[in-house]
Design a protein around this nucleic acid. Structure first.
Lengths: 109, 109
DNA sequence: TGCAGCTATTGCGCATTGCACAGTACTGTG
DNA sequence: CACAGTACTGTGCAATGCGCAATAGCTGCA
């Protein structure tokens, strides 16, 4: 099954959720999302999402040097990002409930 | 909130679910999805989805005359559609669980 | 020195898909 | 006839996830 379309509009939320509580950088966000179960999320998608959220004013950003490789561009939630996160989470929860309702009747009709 | 992006990749599933157990036509599918809670699903999206699913071989189709207006193009699930429905439902359920897992930690860090 | 491999980011172009909008057409009511 | 409700089609756009290539720093090995 190709679940890539399911990510549409939800990747923002997933990234915001991962960033909540602790700043992180692209490569690490990808890793954490995959560990969380989003197995085949593409790296370019995550980097794109981070840039988009930053451009939208939801994230702060700063560069940190690393001993283990090139510099890392850290991102963190600001007030806009936190409020976006809680709004999106609410929207997702209600949407998921609606879908579950639709699916509940499957095979019962 | 704009939930239109959330529909991406899920509208197929929603349409298949509505069609499960009883054949229906575009205009009616729109009505049933809206009643189910997908308030602002666009009619063109549903018609497009029906055509796409039909073209993919998941639906049967036949035209029925109506007393209350123009003809209705009915769609129904065939074997391919039913198996697509159960596969998609499984994929959705597991995806939703993953997202819930990600969101559970929000605000707890 | 040179090469491989992991880490880390950017940019380009494509495919999918939901939607707005316009157009067509049938039925019934005033 | 005008208008509203029903019902479908087609066009073109916008959003966004992804593959792929390029760039670049670091470690370890020969």
């Amino acid at each position: 099954m190709d679940s890539s379309q399911l990510l549409k509009g939800v990747l923002d939320l997933a990234v915001l959720a991962v960033l909540d509580g602790r700043d992180s950088y692209g490569y690490d966000v990808v890793r954490r999302l995959r560990e969380a179960g989003l197995d085949d999320v593409g790296d370019a998608s995550v980097y794109g999402t981070l840039r988009r959220l930053f451009k939208a004013g939801a994230l702060t950003s700063y560069v940190v040097a690393s001993d283990e490789g090139p510099h890392r561009k850290y991102y963190g939630l600001n007030d806009v990002g936190r409020s976006l996160l809680s709004d999106s989470a609410r929207t997702w929860t209600s949407f998921a409930a609606t879908m579950d309702g639709l699916l509940k009747e499957v095979g019962a009709g």
